[in-house]
Design a protein around this nucleic acid. Structure first.
Lengths: 157, 157
DNA sequence: ATCATTGCAAACTGTTTGCATCAAG
DNA sequence: CTTGATGCAAACAGTTTGCAATGAT
């Protein structure tokens, strides 16, 4: 039972250390997993993935480290439409494209005049107040049908 | 202990019945609350609001009815950034403007060439697959600072 | 020696379900 | 009389925390 003291990959070690966290084995495994896939894992899914790699981890340790890593900006975190936290390796602001059939989600950038999109009131009474908001950012959630589901739907029709 | 058999307001009764649900007292109170405010209530907040109006309700009844009402399209539902469900009276597709300081959220429409905003890959490997997605909708989450928080921040500086 | 990390178990929060009671069609 | 609504209590799922053992500096 040898204990690996740092990550195998210097890339990972550096990424963690750069944010002032110690690159412990648990953290390295988490970050490596996220970097190698472009998945948006829930904690539970990560646990399974790590278990399959023969590198299991306590659920408490996982949650503790996910919190630290995401607070430090080493990994990204958001809450899915089902209310469950999800984590990914992309920390820069980005957007999501979600398949309305299977729920799959891919990271995307938004091309086009995003800054030109402005909020306007749904309720007329909000008009005045809305004008005094300072709008700083826009995040777009694209929904549609992924290629795999399009094929499946066609076949079924 | 008289039992009100339908809503006081025909508007509310109709809205519920139009979707094939019986306008029971509990449902009427929920829908009335959402129509009268433009809040995005969590179930817990609704419970408090109803209690203050002297019309409390069992938490189970509340959850059961929120599920039915939102599935039937009588009310809108979404999951907030904290992972907690929130409900509002707006069922048409719309967008949100969120204060990054206090978390307040208002319903907005998106003005501008929203259809012109298109997803493009973050990872080059996704390029080919991304082109084959069928993009159907875009939802924008605006973030910024609300007038009240702007004032508070100014005062503090 | 000190401080951070790990991980088990227990606590907590938001949500759902089983079931008995009550009201409506 | 049959079906649906209510509400209490128990069950659940995701997440957090207390704490003791372990490992790193």
């Amino acid at each position: 039972m040898e204990t690996e003291m740092t990550c195998e990959r210097p890339e990972v070690t550096e990424r963690i250390a750069a944010r002032g966290l110690r690159p412990t084995p648990a953290r390295c495994r988490i970050v490596t997993l996220l970097l190698d896939t472009h998945e948006h894992y829930t904690p539970e899914e990560m646990l399974q993935a790590l278990r399959q790699q023969g590198e299991p981890m306590s659920i408490a340790t996982l949650y503790q480290n996910l919190a630290k890593l995401s607070e430090a900006g080493v990994i990204g975190r958001f809450v899915g439409p089902d209310g469950v936290s999800r984590y990914d390796a992309v920390t820069d602001p980005h957007h999501h494209l979600i398949c309305e059939v299977c729920g799959r989600m891919v990271d995307v950038r938004a091309a086009g005049p995003l800054e030109k999109i402005r909020p306007e009131p749904v309720f007329p009474d909000d008009e005045g107040e809305l004008a005094r908001w300072q709008v700083k950012a826009r995040k777009v959630e694209f929904t549609g049908v992924c290629p795999a589901c399009q094929a499946r739907l066609e076949r079924a029709s």
